[in-house]
Computed example of a mutant assay.
Amino acid sequence: MTARPLPDSATTRARMSAQRRRDTAPELALRRELHRRGRRYRVDRAPLPGMRRRADLVFPRARVAVFVDGCFWHRCPRHATSPKNNAAWWATKLDGNVARDRDTDERLAAAGWTVVRIWEHEDPVTAADAVEVALHPARTDR
């Protein structure tokens, strides 16, 4: 495992450490919609024992892991931006996030899990519909 580079300014370090890991507004909106539909789930859990990566929502019996990805941090194809200040560091950081996401998806799929990735800008009702499809893949009436 390679050492992660540190941001070049105290301001950037402070901003990054203040970034919420859970309970973001898009995540809460999705959770409220799923709860309204009668869905119960685990919050901020590692789907696999010993896995250091945590899903935002986990449905253990159905083996479904849901990640609500921020557009900046996970390079949304519609909203991604690349900071100009310390551009090389940010490119390495954000590319690493995306690579880790793909690795997580592959590891979970290999263990028999379904991964649902939701972008923070997605409508909570539409996002909840995607989770419902993953929970009941054979059903087409939803």
Rank of each mutant, 00 (worst) to 15 (best):
R36G: 10
R36C: 06
R37E: 10
R39F: 02
R40Q: 04
R40D: 04
R40M: 02
V43N: 08
D44S: 13
D44I: 02
D44R: 02
A46V: 09
A46L: 02
P47V: 08
L48C: 10
L48G: 11
L48Q: 12
G50S: 09
M51K: 07
M51A: 09
R52N: 11
R52I: 05
R52L: 06
R53D: 08
D56P: 12
D56H: 11
D56N: 13
D56E: 11
V58P: 04
F59A: 08
F59G: 10
F59S: 08
P60K: 11
P60I: 10
R61C: 01
A62I: 07
R63G: 07
R63W: 03
R63I: 11
V64R: 02
A65W: 08
A65I: 13
F67M: 14
F67R: 12
D69A: 09
G70Q: 12
C71K: 05
C71I: 05
F72L: 05
F72G: 06
H74Y: 01
C76E: 02
C76K: 03
R78T: 08
H79R: 10
H79E: 04
H79Q: 05
A80M: 00
T81G: 12
T81L: 11
T81I: 14
P83N: 07
P83R: 11
K84V: 15
K84L: 11
K84Q: 15
N85P: 01
N86R: 08
A87C: 00
A87Q: 04
A88D: 15
A88F: 03
A91F: 01
K93N: 04
K93Q: 04
L94D: 10
L94Q: 12
L94Y: 06
L94R: 12
D95Q: 00
D95V: 00
A99M: 00
A99G: 00
A99V: 04
R100Y: 01
D101I: 10
D101V: 11
R102K: 15
R102L: 14
D103E: 15
T104M: 11
R107S: 08
R107A: 07
R107L: 09
L108S: 04
A109T: 15
A110Y: 03
A110F: 07
A110P: 04
A111M: 04
A111R: 09
T114F: 01
V116T: 12
V116P: 03
V116K: 08
V116M: 06
R117H: 07
R117K: 10
R117Q: 06
R117A: 05
R117L: 02
R117D: 05
R117F: 00
W119T: 15
E120Q: 14
E120P: 12
E120D: 14
H121G: 09
H121P: 13
